[in-house]
């Protein structure tokens, strides 16, 4: 990605989980870190999220799941982004047990940020990874 381009992020809440404090705080923090951020709101199906990512032409999709449905909801999103040929980085946050992380990361999730993560660290991670592209 050329230096100086603004990174565009979709923050999304897949599934039925309504707890979006984290998603909203991250969305605002990334915006304050100079990115352009779209937040989907709650209760989005994987298909809705992929469609929004395509429509908004984002560089990054940030997913937040606290309900334990990540193993069912994240793979269809990652796969469908790939199928549609979208070169989008996926990061995940929420309550994701350690034992699920490796598999999610092997299957296309770039990084997982659990409770207590620093929003500056998240912003820096995204900037570094995108600059490599």
């Amino acid at each position: 990605m050329p230096v100086g381009d603004i990174i565009k992020v979709l923050v999304a809440k897949p599934g039925l989980d309504g707890h979006d404090r984290g998603a909203k705080v991250i969305a605002r923090a990334l915006r304050d870190a100079g990115m352009e951020v779209v937040y989907t709101g709650i209760r989005q199906s994987p298909a809705m999220i992929v469609e929004a990512a395509a429509q908004e032409d984002v560089d990054v999709v940030g997913l937040s799941i606290l309900s334990g449905a990540h193993n069912e909801l994240v793979p269809p999103i990652v796969d469908s982004l790939k199928d549609q040929g979208l070169n989008v980085m996926v990061v995940l946050g929420g309550i994701i047990p350690e034992s699920d992380r490796l598999e999610l990361k092997n299957n296309g999730v770039s990084e997982i940020f659990g409770p207590g993560s620093n929003t500056q660290d998240i912003a820096n991670f995204i900037k570094e990874e995108i600059s490599k592209k």
């Binding site: 599934g15 309900s67 909801l73």
Partner: peptide, 22 residues
Amino acid sequence: DLPTQMGYDSDHPMSLGEVGKV
């Protein structure tokens, strides 16, 4: 669980991954 809270039966498409979780 969230489907019960949102008025979806356990086999509804929106219940994917959420049945019996929270």
